[in-house]
C-alpha cells in the first residue's frame, strides 16, 4: 500500500463547480509527489481533504495507512503539513511556536527541547529562535513552518506551495531540505506547486491537475518525453537570409512556427543534432546571431493536455480554498 492512496475523491462546495472531481492517485513511501496546477485548480482543496481538515463529498483516501474520514486523529498524528502562507503567530518567538506545537502533539521535557533545537538548527534558525516571528523574513517563516511540520517526526509531509513569494536563495535552500528529507529520512512528501521548475527539480513523480481533474501523471522525464523532442531556435545575423536558414535547417527536423526573424525546428535526434547544424550553416555562410536550444518543459506538457499554458493560466481564477 502506498503512503497516500486516493480513489474517486470529490469535493463540492455549495456554490460553484466541483473543486476536486473524482481524482485517483497513489504516492509510494519515501516518494516526492509534485501536484502541479494553476491557482484554483483544486490543489489546496485536495491537500485540505488529505490532511483531514475538510471532509470529502465522495470517494476514499488513506494517508499513512489510515482512512482520512474514519481515522482523522491517526492521520493527523502521522502527517506534518506546511499549508499555504506560513500561518504563524507574529507575537510569539520561533521557540515558543515549537513548544506550543510540540506540547499539543504530546511531546514534553527534554525530548521536545532537543528535537526543537535540532530542527531549529537544521533550518538555520537557531540564532533567531528567541525573536518574535513578526520580525522574520518570508524565508525564515517558511523554514520555521517546515520545522514545525517535522516536529513530531511525521511519516508523510504535505507542503502546499511552500516557496511562493520566496527569493531564489531561500527557495533553493528549502528545495535542498525537502530533497534531503525524502532521501535520508524516507519521508513521503506531497508537494503542491504552481512553479514548473520546482516540480521538475524535486518531484519523483508529477500529477497535473486542472479544473479539479488530474489530466496527466508520471515522472517529469516521462511527461516531457511524451510531449516531444528538443527544439532549436536560430536567428541569423542577416535577416535577409531567413529563408536560406529555414532551408538549411529542414533536414534536421520538423519546422516549427517562425517568429520574427527566428527559425525553429523540433530536432530529429535531439541535442546531438546541434553540432551538425552549426557545421551546415557555416558551410553555407549563414552567420548565426543567436542560437537557443530548448528542452521540453512541464509547461509544454500542460499546454499539450489542456490547450493552455500553465504560466499565469490561473491568475484570474478565484481561489476555492475554504477557511478551516
Amino acid at each position: 500500500m502506498g503512503a497516500i492512496e486516493v480513489r474517486g475523491l470529490v469535493r463540492e462546495f455549495k456554490k460553484g463547480p466541483r473543486a476536486v472531481d473524482n481524482i485517483d492517485l497513489t504516492v509510494a513511501e519515501g516518494e516526492i509527489y509534485g501536484f502541479l496546477g494553476p491557482n484554483g485548480a483544486g490543489k489546496s482543496t485536495t491537500v485540505l481533504m488529505l490532511t483531514t481538515l475538510l471532509p470529502p463529498t465522495a470517494g476514499t483516501a488513506t494517508v499513512a495507512g489510515f482512512d482520512i474520514v474514519k481515522q482523522g486523529p491517526q492521520v493527523r498524528a502521522s502527517i506534518g503539513a506546511a499549508l499555504q502562507e506560513a500561518a504563524l503567530d507574529r507575537f510569539l518567538t520561533g521557540r515558543e511556536h515549537i513548544k506550543l506545537q510540540g506540547s499539543l502533539h504530546g511531546m514534553k521535557g527534554a525530548d521536545l527541547r532537543q528535537r526543537g533545537n535540532d530542527l531549529l538548527e537544521r533550518v538555520g534558525l537557531t540564532d533567531a529562535a528567541d525573536r518574535k516571528v513578526g520580525g522574520y523574513s518570508g524565508g525564515m517563516k517558511r523554514r520555521l513552518d517546515l520545522a514545525l511540520a517535522l516536529l513530531h517526526r511525521p511519516r508523510v509531509l504535505f507542503l502546499d506551495e511552500p516557496t511562493t513569494g520566496l527569493d531564489p536563495q531561500s527557495r533553493s535552500a528549502l528545495w535542498d531540505e525537502v530533497a534531503r528529507l525524502s532521501r535520508e529520512d524516507g519521508v513521503t512528501v506531497f508537494l503542491t506547486t504552481q512553479y514548473l521548475e520546482e516540480a521538475d527539480a524535486l518531484a519523483n513523480r508529477v500529477g497535473i491537475i486542472d479544473h479539479g481533474t488530474i489530466v496527466v501523471e508520471g515522472t517529469p522525464d516521462e511527461l516531457k518525453a511524451e510531449v516531444g523532442r528538443s527544439s532549436v531556435e536560430i536567428e541569423p545575423h542577416d535577416a535577409a537570409r531567413l529563408a536560406d536558414l529555414e532551408r538549411a535547417l529542414a533536414p534536421f527536423g520538423e519546422p516549427m512556427v517562425t517568429r520574427g526573424t527566428r527559425a525553429s525546428i523540433r530536432l530529429n535526434e535531439g541535442v546531438g543534432d546541434v553540432a551538425a547544424i552549426v557545421r551546415a550553416l557555416d558551410a553555407q555562410g549563414i552567420v548565426v546571431h543567436q542560437l537557443r536550444l530548448r528542452e521540453p518543459t512541464l509547461d509544454d506538457v500542460f499546454l499539450e493536455k489542456t490547450g493552455r499554458s500553465l504560466e499565469g493560466s490561473g491568475d484570474n481564477d478565484e481561489d476555492e480554498t475554504p477557511s478551516a
Binding site: 481538515l53 493527523r76 502527517i79 503539513a81 499549508l83 499539543l104 514545525l148
Partner: peptide, 16 residues
C-alpha cells in the same frame, strides 16, 4: 485573526 491567518488550521492539525 487565527482563523484569518490559518493559525487555527495549524492547531487543528495537532491532536488539540
Amino acid at each position: 485573526t487565527d482563523i484569518e491567518t490559518g493559525f487555527l488550521s495549524r492547531l487543528s492539525l495537532t491532536p488539540m
